[in-house]
Design a protein around this nucleic acid. Sequence first.
DNA 1: AATTTTAATATGTAGTACATAAGTATTTAA
DNA 2: TTAAATACTTATGTACTACATATTAAAATT
Lengths: 231, 231
Amino acid sequence: MGIENLHIDIGKVSYKTMADEVEMKLLEYLKRKSFKPGDALPKEMELTAALGVSRNVLREALSRLRMLGMIETKKRRGMVLSSPDILGSMERVMDPLIIDDTTLQDIFELRLTLEMGLADILYIRKTKKDIEELEKIALSQKTTPTKQNFRIKHEVEFHGKIYQMTGNRTMQRFQTMLLPIFGYLVNEEKVPIVGKVSHIDLVNLLKNGSREEFREGMRKHLEHHFKKLKK
Amino acid sequence: MGIENLHIDIGKVSYKTMADEVEMKLLEYLKRKSFKPGDALPKEMELTAALGVSRNVLREALSRLRMLGMIETKKRRGMVLSSPDILGSMERVMDPLIIDDTTLQDIFELRLTLEMGLADILYIRKTKKDIEELEKIALSQKTTPTKQNFRIKHEVEFHGKIYQMTGNRTMQRFQTMLLPIFGYLVNEEKVPIVGKVSHIDLVNLLKNGSREEFREGMRKHLEHHFKKLKK
DNA sequence: AATTTTAATATGTAGTACATAAGTATTTAA
DNA sequence: TTAAATACTTATGTACTACATATTAAAATT
């Protein structure tokens, strides 16, 4: 094992602030007490008293929970638990320039994996209407120029539609988040590589082919990406 | 389109606090200026002056960025940008009792999709040693009782090992996060359903079979989950 | 010159004060 | 008596001050 994942393996020497501590305790408290969304939570003053910290520190922790969508606060009414947005905070940090290279590569592979796994759900959920729309997208790209930025835009449009066809909004959002990363890494390729299976081919497979045939088509479409993966 | 995703479609009527605003501006600032990890950031006082807010509000926003791992702060030295932990905040909120049902289902499907997409990377990265370890796990489960909690524990162990074999730590962490959700939904099944393809079968496929054969094996292993998916 | 001591500085925590929104109770008027 | 207007209460939101603490930089001492 290399040294590049050391920060994951042993963790950082992070000295914990009280806000960190309070955040942890609050999360634990909310889960342990098994509050349900909508339930009212204690007032700030009650929490400061119980935790023995200043309102300042408490509010820093609460602010984090608010960001996660775990709590909602209204003046006078107080706080209530709510259903967190599991992808929200991920969206905030999705910037290829900030994320470390190992994770970028991981994300790249994660998307490839999803793409290869899509067939099963796709064949359960696909509709005639969706396939027609996908075909329209694929055909519109046939005649357009092959400049780099155009090519990526088309990739995004086509694959985005496929994710949408799964009817799974979380998956759809997830893939949208991964796109900048994907685009960033692919952009480094100087020579535009054309897969053996085009978008139109994929549409035809989706129309007439089996689940397995579509998946193999997708594999060939992504072949050049897979070839570059390191053992 | 149903009403169940309305909160995603139109967003909540959330009245924005200044901390929300400042958080947004800081994120935008950090990305726009294309700081790199390690770069020093302005002092709190400079930021309060520039933003025209109290130190209190600023610190609530900074506290959020700290939670995301985007910034690190040290006394006297100030703040530096750092590589965020993209899954960290997701881990915090992964509680099946809090997350709404639609998202829970989405997550369930997301995991199935990953599972089906794993074959490609797995066949690039698998080693003899890993397969032996996986076999050991599979065999140890053959003789054990079939009680619900044991079954789930075995599932976790086996599939966890497979994810580990991808060499993709993000994927591995991601799946670990998804487990409680998966366990929660599967736990509702009263009758233990045994797939046509067992863990041992999967190991043998991984040893002697092709990528496609392994994937079809995985599909059969997960068949009863797929059968329950709604159109 | 090397070491110790002192000072300076930026973040961390505490506490007070007041603004603001939103229920709740009270008063006023039809 | 009831409806509307008014005043009151309460919990969160924002601002400001003060001081603690860690860490770097500078100064003093050996």
